[in-house]
Simulated assay, not measured.
Amino acid sequence: MDERSYLATWQKYMPVIRLHIKRSLTEDQQFKLNITDFESAGDKGKSGYMFNINIEDGKATNKISTSAVARDLYELLRADEVIRGLLKDKNVKISVGKSFILNIKTTHLSSYR
């Protein structure tokens, strides 16, 4: 597995991801990714590029270390100051399925946890 092979690919998408995370505060968001961008960054073969990231108050709550695609995206999300602010006190679910559409769903965390 190539270490951090998808960072440059995700970096290209960061402006649109930032916008969709902002918009996800009011309604669920989705947009189509270009599979060619990811295929040129690394060969996933039969395993594909599907993943789920559950982020609660800025921290991943599910295991993403086995997916280089998810791990690299999460690393960039954490490094982006604007996105870190948007993730505070929120539960954000980011996923990519077989159709290669990135979905973002955001809910506010209850203060009565």
Results as ranks from 00 to 15, higher is better:
residue 15 P to K: 08
residue 10 W to R: 04
residue 17 I to T: 03
residue 19 L to H: 12
residue 19 L to I: 14
residue 44 K to Y: 14
residue 40 S to V: 11
residue 34 N to H: 08
residue 8 A to S: 08
residue 4 R to H: 09
residue 20 H to M: 12
residue 16 V to C: 02
residue 24 S to C: 06
residue 37 D to Q: 08
residue 29 Q to F: 02
residue 16 V to M: 05
residue 6 Y to M: 06
residue 22 K to F: 09
residue 41 A to E: 00
residue 10 W to S: 04
residue 13 Y to T: 02
residue 6 Y to F: 14
residue 12 K to E: 08
residue 5 S to P: 04
residue 19 L to Y: 10
residue 46 K to P: 10
residue 7 L to P: 03
residue 39 E to I: 11
residue 46 K to G: 10
residue 16 V to P: 00
residue 18 R to C: 12
residue 38 F to S: 02
residue 35 I to V: 12
residue 13 Y to W: 07
residue 22 K to G: 10
residue 8 A to V: 08
residue 45 G to P: 04
residue 28 D to W: 08
residue 4 R to Y: 11
residue 31 F to D: 00
residue 21 I to H: 03
residue 7 L to C: 00
residue 35 I to A: 08
residue 23 R to I: 07
residue 42 G to Q: 11
residue 41 A to R: 00
residue 20 H to L: 10
residue 35 I to N: 00
residue 4 R to T: 00
residue 21 I to Q: 03
residue 18 R to T: 10
residue 35 I to P: 03
residue 25 L to M: 07
residue 40 S to D: 13
residue 31 F to N: 00
residue 16 V to F: 03
residue 22 K to Q: 11
residue 37 D to I: 05
residue 32 K to A: 14
residue 43 D to W: 08
residue 17 I to W: 01
residue 39 E to N: 10
residue 11 Q to R: 13
residue 44 K to S: 15
residue 32 K to C: 09
residue 15 P to W: 04
residue 27 E to I: 05
residue 24 S to I: 05
residue 46 K to H: 11
residue 38 F to Y: 04
residue 29 Q to M: 10
residue 21 I to W: 02
residue 21 I to T: 05
residue 31 F to E: 00
residue 16 V to T: 12
residue 31 F to I: 06
residue 38 F to H: 04
residue 11 Q to D: 07
residue 4 R to C: 13
residue 36 T to D: 07
residue 27 E to K: 15
residue 9 T to S: 07
residue 27 E to P: 09
residue 24 S to F: 03
residue 40 S to K: 15
residue 5 S to F: 08
residue 29 Q to G: 01
residue 35 I to S: 07
residue 11 Q to F: 06
residue 15 P to E: 04
residue 42 G to H: 10
residue 11 Q to E: 10
residue 44 K to W: 13
residue 25 L to E: 00
residue 16 V to K: 12
residue 17 I to E: 00
residue 15 P to M: 04
residue 16 V to I: 15
residue 36 T to P: 01
residue 41 A to F: 03
residue 19 L to W: 02
residue 31 F to M: 01
residue 46 K to N: 12
residue 22 K to H: 13
residue 32 K to D: 08
